[in-house]
Design a protein around this nucleic acid. Structure first.
Lengths: 121, 121
DNA sequence: CTAAAACCTCACGTGGACGTCAGATTCCAC
DNA sequence: GTGGAATCTGACGTCCACGTGAGGTTTTAG
């Protein structure tokens, strides 16, 4: 399929797909005229890239990790990276959790104080 | 205390503190000569700001949320913002969780395949 | 065959949270 | 009072995942 169709199916912009190629994460075939051609598996691959981006990984990390997601194998360095990213995600989740608790506290207080003067029954 | 001492105690850079002031989040007193002077509560405030940043809030959101963290009160708009940010954090946590699971799978596979050819016993 | 839609390659713009450098001023210990 | 440390105000630099034209080429529907 061509770049526009993949962009639609994967829910990203055409520019993003070109950027992924620039970074080496998703390199398509080319038609004789120079147009990009992607296989069906590219849709899942883009989803995976998006998932990793959403988790705070850099394109550099994703580039190293992607191949071994497909092959199931990893060099020791990539394994280190995988573990490091996993630990970073754990830390980020606990930070998010703490901030969420803080927000919940504020919401609870603000909610009660608001009802105090909004519905003073 | 002055800006350098606060930076040390709060574990941020002097530049960051000036940036917080520029954004209205932490506005200190000034000496006659123009130097910033912070109270002891500023340390906790900076921690809070950092915590919110770590959770992905923008300086704009933090600016609106900070006052009602202190007063315990909130206007309906700020309450909406609080709830929206809380929901965003929830979504981000589930995305992180999904990515972590994916990494775990890869780590498990890579670990076994590595031991396959690293220690073929 | 042709027109328009889709695609191509540069290449500069964006936003956010600061880093960093320059040059001037203020503070504090001695 | 003086010298060095700390601080001051601009203002430009950084990084990254794209956004956004400009100007030209390829593909495809009719």
């Amino acid at each position: 399929m061509r770049i526009g169709e993949l962009a639609l199916k994967a829910g990203v912009s055409v520019r993003a797909l070109r950027y992924y190629e620039e970074k080496g994460m998703l390199v398509p075939e080319r038609s004789t005229g120079g147009h990009r051609h992607y296989g069906d598996r590219s849709v899942d691959l883009v989803w995976l890239i998006q998932q990793f981006y959403a988790a705070g990984l850099s394109s550099r990390s994703i580039l190293e990790i992607l191949p071994c997601v497909e092959t199931g194998e990893a060099t020791p360095e990539v394994l280190d990276l995988l573990v490091a990213e996993r630990e970073r995600i754990d830390r980020q989740m606990s930070e998010l959790s703490a901030a969420r608790d803080r927000l919940d506290t504020v919401i609870a207080n603000a909610g009660s104080s608001c009802s105090d003067h909004c519905r003073p029954d």
